[in-house]
Structure formats: C-alpha cells, structure tokens
Amino acid sequence: MNEKTVAGYCIRCNDQGYLTDLEQWNREIGLEIAEEENITMTDKHWEVIEYLQNQCKQGVAITIRKVGKSGVVDIKQFYQLFPNGPLKKASKIAGIPKPVSCI
C-alpha cells in the first residue's frame, strides 16, 4: 500500500495509482488524475464517473457492457471520452479499483 499526495490531499493507493479507499476521493483528486491521463473532463465525463462509483458502492462488477447499457453513454462514446482502455482510465479517475481477473 502506498500513500501519495494528489491535489494537495494525502491518499492511499496501490502501486499503479488506483485509490484503495473511495471515501478519500473528491472531484479535485479526480481532476488531477484525469490530467495525468491527458483527459479533459466535461459534464459527460463526470456523469460516467458518478455512474461507475455508484455501481462500485453497490458491489457490482463493472464491465464495458454494463457501461454501454447504463443509459449514460454507449460504448463508442465511452471510448471517445476515455480513449485507450476506457474502463481502466475511468476507474482510476473515479477512485475505484481497476477491473481484475482471478490472477
């Protein structure tokens, strides 16, 4: 477990920079991580982030298919908003764990 300072807040994260405690997240932190990922956040971006956080809080495993059916964006739009690996990038900005397999 690492600690790092993002947007002036001290947060706990794993060694790939994913927050390990969603409680510590706020928009400023999300914004700074997005900048690191070269993403300029718009209202649509934040809507997706909020959707992902809600799913995570409900303990639902997040998949591309779910995002595509969320009513927030379709999969093509999700790719336009978060190019190259949208799920892992959006998860990082949202402060939720990266989707993992069993190994």
């Binding site: 591309i64 690996g85 892992k88 990266k98 989707p99 993992v100 397999s101 190994i103």
Partner: peptide, 16 residues
C-alpha cells in the same frame, strides 16, 4: 484480452 494484461493481480503479475 479485454483486461489490462494477461495477469491483473499484483503477486501473479510479478511471479508469472
């Protein structure tokens, strides 16, 4: 793979 790698968990990634 749709995942971020063949291995996604830290220990397995290191070992395998």
């Amino acid at each position: 793979t749709p995942m971020s790698g063949a291995f996604t968990k830290p220990v397995a990634t290191k070992e395998l």
